[in-house]
Design a protein around this nucleic acid. Structure first.
Length: 193
DNA sequence: AAAGAGATGGTCT
DNA sequence: GACCATCTCTTTT
């Protein structure tokens, strides 16, 4: 058996992320999303995710590769960022094997470090509403199109994933996805209990 | 507490 | 030219 070191514990395994989106989505719960924002370190614990894959009419990859969705077909562990409704950004963790258009939408995080920075960026909104939506968390962590396709597992990346040291979450709550018009019956939304 | 509407721009048909 | 994997503010129960 091998002994896990302090640095090992902070890494997220890329091969785990290369599994199917509906498997990765619940597995990402409780993982830390870390961003360098205005010179400060902001950390959010992922508490809600949604899976999308290319067999899924709600997915950006359902109709095949395009310039926009190209990152979803790339290496697992990179981020796919898109502009939503011309105003908000949404961040996805690319997963699945290379060549398959799959990703996990980050729907909500809980701020565990850098709360002051986040409050400022979110214009003093109540703490409950700081990062409880995919557009809100991108505004809070300053994630935008300039980050599209960057590697979330690269410690030098301005946005990255780190493993949490706390106890694993219990069985996630499962339900239908939000804000879509097709694929509404597929229960691919996951939330920490 | 819930429902409605406007903002706003990239992407694809 | 239509369509959004959304958010916020306003209006209505």
């Amino acid at each position: 058996t091998t002994r896990m070191t302090a640095t090992d514990r902070r890494l997220v395994d890329r091969t785990e992320l290369a599994r199917r989106a509906p498997v990765v989505a619940p597995a990402l719960l409780n993982t830390l999303l870390v961003a360098d924002v205005e010179g400060a370190r902001v950390v959010g614990r992922i508490v809600e995710t949604e899976a999308y894959d290319e067999d899924d009419p709600a997915s950006h990859t359902f109709r095949g590769p395009t310039p926009r969705n190209a990152p979803m077909f790339g290496e697992a562990g990179h981020v796919y960022v898109y502009l939503s409704y011309g105003i908000h950004h949404c961040a996805n963790v690319v997963c699945g094997p290379e060549g398959r258009g799959e990703a996990v939408l980050l729907r909500a995080v809980e701020v565990i470090e850098g709360i002051d920075t986040v409050r400022r960026r979110r214009n003093g909104r109540p703490d409950r509403e700081l990062t409880d939506g995919p557009g809100k968390l991108c505004q809070a962590l300053a994630i935008d199109l300039t980050h599209d396709s960057t590697d979330l597992l690269d410690p030098a990346s301005p946005v990255r994933l780190e493993r949490d040291d706390v106890d694993p979450p219990g069985a996630p709550l499962v339900g239908p996805r939000i804000g879509i018009s097709a694929g509404v019956d597929t229960p691919w939304r996951f939330r920490v209990p």
